[in-house]
Design a protein around this nucleic acid. Sequence first.
DNA 1: AATGAATGAGCATTCATTCAT
DNA 2: TATGAATGAATGCTCATTCAT
Lengths: 195, 195, 195, 195
Amino acid sequence: MTPSPARRGELLGVAAEVFAAQGYNATTVRKIADEAGMLAGSLYYHFDSKEGILDEILSSFLDELWQGYDEVLAAGLGPRETIEALVTESFREIDRHRAAVAIYQKESRHLAQQERFAYLVESQQKFEKAWLGTLERGVAAQVFRSDLDIRLTYRFVRDTVWVAASWYRPGGQHSPEEIARQYLSMVLDGIAVRI
Amino acid sequence: MTPSPARRGELLGVAAEVFAAQGYNATTVRKIADEAGMLAGSLYYHFDSKEGILDEILSSFLDELWQGYDEVLAAGLGPRETIEALVTESFREIDRHRAAVAIYQKESRHLAQQERFAYLVESQQKFEKAWLGTLERGVAAQVFRSDLDIRLTYRFVRDTVWVAASWYRPGGQHSPEEIARQYLSMVLDGIAVRI
Amino acid sequence: MTPSPARRGELLGVAAEVFAAQGYNATTVRKIADEAGMLAGSLYYHFDSKEGILDEILSSFLDELWQGYDEVLAAGLGPRETIEALVTESFREIDRHRAAVAIYQKESRHLAQQERFAYLVESQQKFEKAWLGTLERGVAAQVFRSDLDIRLTYRFVRDTVWVAASWYRPGGQHSPEEIARQYLSMVLDGIAVRI
Amino acid sequence: MTPSPARRGELLGVAAEVFAAQGYNATTVRKIADEAGMLAGSLYYHFDSKEGILDEILSSFLDELWQGYDEVLAAGLGPRETIEALVTESFREIDRHRAAVAIYQKESRHLAQQERFAYLVESQQKFEKAWLGTLERGVAAQVFRSDLDIRLTYRFVRDTVWVAASWYRPGGQHSPEEIARQYLSMVLDGIAVRI
DNA sequence: AATGAATGAGCATTCATTCAT
DNA sequence: TATGAATGAATGCTCATTCAT
């Protein structure tokens, strides 16, 4: 009567991969089932809806993300070190949950309007608070430039990191930590040669 | 023979807005018609398919974009000035074609697989060549840092600019030129205070 | 206010040609208008519906057909001569109204079920009476074979003649009269060599 | 993977009946489903399109037809006996596949233009070759009259047989063999009394 | 756990028809 | 007489979902 968690896990992985590749709306439940070697109807033994699958993918990704973030934020680091740690943690998440991150990027904005996905909004607010707060701390501490619009800077840093999920392929030549290092170098010090 | 270009223009604007807000697949032709104050079938007097509408939105955006880019690239500027001009031009396009840019961001990857949208691939290649080439020129001229992975830098700059379309609202407090200036400042010089 | 009969005539000709080539259902009102060099809506100045056009094509064809047939039937010919005259007249009609005949062949069966086309049923009954009657007269007069099922013979002769409309092209190498002669020769005397 | 052939078979039968009665274009997929006691969408579990259904009806009919024809043509009969056997076989096909034959008559001409139905053209050419060849053999052997246009004769015989599908009802008072016998008698010896 | 067959709502698209100009 | 723009009903088809087996 109760579906095995192991099989669920596999199926969630398959679904995430397909959602990421084709988009949630464009993905049919039959495509997922095909990929999993079963018939469309059979998925409903494990999940109660297509939306439910998406929900589980996104929420379990965010749970894990926040576990990492909360640890960083609780560590009492300086603003620059916090940013560095958050960026590094983010690239690690992209490495581990590439599909989920890609789905999140593409779908979260319009999903957020639905009751069921209200947690996306919450998460985004918490996210903004963490990053914006750290940047503000950094400006106050004269670690970050004060001549920039702070919200623009926030968006810049945020987008800069997460869009990477759209091209990142796990197992490539750069480790997440290496990519994080280079991104941080660009974001913090710029791409121009210092005179 | 050809229905009035004026009405077509209006309808394309409406469609672009809806596509950008809800995604191409999730947008029904009926929704577009509703928004335009007509019935779904009536759209087919002006266009021959939903895909045709999308096509026209994207291709006319790219046409205009490349007009601007080509002018910049032909001006014989130095690498840094070229990057500055391209970024500024990009934000001007985002300002003028926000919806089209947002659609492009969300849909181009999977559209590019279709014959009809082959021009998206071409455009992307031309795009990469222009940006990557300029960056390489800059590294050679010791204007840009040589210690960064050049492809990573390219993606960084590219994404950094275009993702802005997802939150940019025309008529906001910053002009496109002002946003471009701040972005360029971050990208070129970083957000950290120089020691 | 009253459309000119001349233009109507032209348009009916165009419509008949298209109906014959593509079938009534598969023919769009727009296709007819295209062929006539006007827009679909404009046809409605001349006719009140697509069905009305079809009606006019078929009824004016049948009117002309019966004018010829009635003349033959009133001439007081013997059974064999009557059959000969009817077949010849039929091929002349096919020559003059090829399109209408082709439409009649393809569509009359299901059109006959509609009130508006009740005259098709009447015509068919009159038709059957004329042919069947002549055949019976011929059998009684020992001009036609008495060992054949008379209804089967009727269908044989009828189909044999009219299906020709499906391949006949006016202006070909045989005149209608020549084709009639050969058909009659086959129907009356058979294709086998007499021993 | 493939839905049960039994159900497919039933559904094909239902569809053929409706196509034959109303014409392919005029038949809606809903009508077929109604007749089969299911909803329109459900048909798509068994077939992938309306056209696919038509394709299967026609091709399986032609397959069976050619099985019978090829047997006759391989039997090494004289020209007259070949014609007799072909006609008899044709009426047997009409008896077994009345609906398919009627559809073939009405739709094959315009279907033949489509790539998918190219086999209709092939079949028709093979058909013409078989019949025309036999007639020519017969003329050479002085079994058939030499004073008739041979192509006209071919069309005459061909149409004569197949149009019967438009009025034939299986289970009527004449068996296919009996109808074939009478048709052959008319075609070979004519309907006129021999003097 | 999974299949086979179906449901039903919704979708893009077509098309005869209308009507103000 | 004809156009341009629209209507509205219908059509073929898709797809998430259900459920008896």
